[in-house]
Simulated assay, not measured.
Amino acid sequence: MHKGPIWAIIVSIIAIVSIYFLTDIKENQDIQTINKVIDSDDNETISLFLDSIDEEERNTALSLFQEARDSQDSAAVEALIAFYEEKQQYNFAAYYHSLKAEITPLASNWEVAGDRQISVSSNAAYDVSFNEMLYEEALISYQKAIDLDSSNLELQVKLGSAIVDRSPQPMQGITLLLGVIEQDSMHINGNLALGKFGIISGQYDKAVIRLEKVLSLQPENAEALFLSGEAYSNLGMNGKAISCFSKCKEIVENEDLKKEIDAYLQQLL
Rank of each mutant, 00 (worst) to 15 (best):
G4E: 14
W7L: 14
I9H: 08
A15Q: 14
I19F: 13
T23Q: 13
I25Y: 07
K26F: 07
K26T: 07
D30Y: 14
D41F: 03
D42K: 11
N43D: 15
N43W: 11
E44A: 03
E44W: 00
T45Q: 12
S47L: 07
S63A: 07
F65T: 01
Q66T: 06
A68H: 00
D70I: 12
S71I: 10
Q72H: 14
A75Y: 05
V77K: 06
Y84I: 02
E85W: 00
K87T: 06
A94K: 04
Y95K: 11
H97K: 12
H97V: 04
I103T: 12
T104S: 14
T104E: 15
S108N: 14
S108A: 15
E111G: 10
G114S: 12
R116F: 05
Q117H: 05
I118G: 02
D127S: 07
N131Y: 03
L134P: 05
Y135W: 12
E136N: 09
Q143S: 14
Q143N: 12
I146K: 10
L148S: 14
L153H: 05
L153Q: 09
K158S: 00
K158D: 01
L159M: 10
A162N: 04
R166A: 13
P170M: 06
G173H: 00
G173Q: 00
L176E: 11
L178Y: 00
G179V: 02
E182A: 08
E182Q: 09
H187A: 05
I200Y: 09
D205G: 05
K206V: 04
A207N: 09
A207L: 09
V208H: 05
I209D: 08
L211E: 11
E212T: 01
K213V: 01
E220P: 01
N221M: 05
E223V: 10
S228N: 08
E230A: 11
G236M: 05
M237F: 00
N238M: 12
A241G: 06
I242A: 05
E250R: 12
E260H: 00
I261M: 08
D262M: 01
Q266C: 06
L268Y: 12
